[in-house]
């Protein structure tokens, strides 16, 4: 589903990703952990080309994102993204946030888009907030709407960039619950997270990224219980 070959990314002189090669399969949930500044968010953002790739290849669903001939907008409709800061559209009601892209990008009728949006809101437990504006919602509710908004495009893959890092602790659970449900339904997911409990419980595989490389990868069991790399051990001893 996702193939990454020797992915490198530099900002000027500073090399953030130093050659990442990996493959993520359909229906797989991958959690990416690592210290801040390690390049894990940059890695995720390269997967839908929110960051320009310096060199290497990112292939999603057979589309090579680094090929200039690829219609990136088309590929992005298959890749949902959830941001740390939610990034709901503040001038639109909750339901309009969800229907905007289906109507304008997928050219779905408004009626159909709204029907679908209400189903998704129901799924994330926020049906009654359809007519609210984002600013009326709590952080956890905003993030659940953001997930519904991404799902409205019926993506094949969902990318989560530290989806609970900006939340008050009591709201983390409700967002993780939605993500867990999504994982159980078989969605392919790549989650950059500091929630080790979630990674351990939900992930099929865990990547430990540090200094721009995947230093270690394996099942949660392998990575959390018997990490091989010294830096993984140091990191885990600090966060667990």
């Amino acid at each position: 589903m996702i193939q990454v070959k020797d992915l490198k990314k530099s900002y000027g002189e500073h090399q953030v990703l130093k050659g990442i090669t990996t493959e993520i399969h359909e229906r797989e949930v991958v959690c990416v952990i690592g210290p801040s500044g390690s390049g894990k968010s940059t890695f995720l953002r390269c997967l839908n080309l929110l960051e320009e790739v310096t060199s290497g290849k990112v292939i999603i669903n057979g589309f090579d994102l680094t090929d200039p001939k690829t219609d990136i907008n088309q590929v992005r409709t298959n890749v949902g993204m959830v941001f740390q800061q939610f990034e709901l559209f503040p001038h639109k009601r909750v339901i309009e946030n969800i229907t905007l892209a289906p109507i304008h990008v997928r050219k779905v009728s408004q009626e159909q888009a709204e029907k679908k949006a209400l189903q998704l809101l129901q799924k994330v437990g926020l049906e009654e907030k359809a007519q609210a504006y984002p600013e009326e919602l709590s952080g956890g509710q905003k993030q659940r709407v953001a997930i519904a908004r991404a799902l409205a495009m019926e993506p094949k893959v969902m990318l989560f960039d530290e989806p609970t890092s900006a939340l008050d602790p009591e709201m983390v659970g409700e967002v993780l619950a939605v993500m867990k449900e999504l994982a159980q339904e078989g969605m392919t997911m790549v989650v950059v997270t500091h929630e080790m409990g979630f990674a351990r419980e939900v992930a099929d595989r865990v990547f430990f990224i540090d200094e721009g490389l995947i230093l270690e990868e394996g099942t949660p069991e392998q990575v959390f219980t018997s990490p091989k790399h010294e830096r993984t051990q140091v990191f885990l001893s600090k966060v667990l």
Binding site: N48, L50, N73, Q74, R76, T77, V79, G80, M81, F83, Q85, E87, L88, F89, L100, A101, H104, V105, R106, A146, R149, A150, M153
Partner: peptide, 15 residues
């Protein structure tokens, strides 16, 4: 307008 708004819109497939 925060950069994230453009990113969110683009990530949904908008040009």
């Amino acid at each position: 307008i925060e950069k994230g708004q453009m990113e969110a819109a683009r990530s949904l497939g908008m040009n």
